[in-house]
């Protein structure tokens, strides 16, 4: 396709827009001149340079969020042709046209394609997804992590809190308070760490609160959607096992 590109060749977009958090959404069509190797972000930049819709009317440029432009920050997540993914990694050549772009509506929409992922960071705080090492004196070096464990734990640490797994999950919506797959997997990561393990119970108990791991209904869309290939369903099942064990342990120890 790219070789046959001519100056007249263009890419069609149908973008779901929203002017403010409260206003209604609407769609607007755009036609952007084709350039070889372009992706959704570069197309949005083109619209920004020349904010005209497909009818040729001048319109407000489409707003979006992005940072790294190499699929590691997660900021540019949006729904492209029905699938939530990173716009910076969505190559135009590989997409069916017209390309339909929507914000990830599981999250509050700020404007156009910009969403507010705060709930994910709140969830990470809730499950204490960190390793407490601060003290009033030097605690010395922590225990070492076995290499065999480090290898799979590293995979879990690739999560960029992009929100794609929450968007894909049928149980993350306004009718539930489910925190979603990402935070559950992070509990597994931090509980695997030899120092993090010392606060293992706190994180498990956080998963046993309302909106915790019980919200999972095993549709397993998350693992198919995650751009980082994180074994989310294995993490969830592992945390199911750990919380179940923790539940029995607590009953038997009172």
């Amino acid at each position: 396709m790219a070789q046959t590109a001519t100056a007249s060749k263009s890419v069609k977009f149908i973008i779901t827009r929203q002017d403010s958090p409260e206003s209604k959404s609407y769609t607007e069509e755009f036609e952007v001149p084709y350039r070889p190797g372009m992706n959704v972000i570069s197309a949005l930049m083109e619209i920004q340079r020349n904010p005209k819709n497909a009818q040729g009317q001048t319109t407000a440029p489409v707003c979006w969020d992005s940072n790294c432009l190499e699929e590691v920050c997660g900021a540019c997540s949006m729904v492209i042709n029905g699938k939530p993914r990173q716009a910076c990694a969505a190559l135009i050549d590989k997409l069916e046209q017209p390309i339909r772009i929507q914000p990830m509506k599981t999250f509050p929409v700020v404007r156009d394609l910009i969403i507010d992922r705060s709930r994910m960071f709140t969830a990470l705080k809730r499950v204490k997804a960190w390793i407490p090492i601060d003290g009033t004196y030097d605690l010395g070096p922590g225990p070492r992590m076995a290499e065999s464990k480090r290898q799979w734990a590293y995979e879990l640490s690739k999560c960029m809190t992009c929100g794609v797994c929450l968007e894909a999950c049928p149980n993350v919506n306004e009718k539930t308070d489910f925190i979603g797959p990402a935070a559950i997997s992070q509990v597994r990561l931090f509980n695997a760490h030899p120092t993090g393990e010392m606060n293992k119970e706190e994180r498990l108990e956080a998963l046993m609160q309302d909106g915790g791991i019980e919200g999972c209904g095993n549709s397993q869309n998350c693992v198919r959607a995650c751009p980082k290939g994180i074994p989310l369903t294995t993490s969830i099942a592992e945390m199911n096992k750990e919380t179940t064990k923790h539940m029995f342990k607590r009953w038997l120890s009172v």
Binding site: G82, P170, K175, N218, Q220, N221
Partner: peptide
């Protein structure tokens, strides 16, 4: 109540597990 809580999305996520979920 659990059934009511799900927003089924087999249209965009046409996977075997998700279909069984629905």
């Amino acid at each position: 109540y659990i059934a009511y809580q799900a927003n089924n999305n087999v249209g965009n996520f046409n996977y075997e597990r998700n279909i069984r979920f629905m």
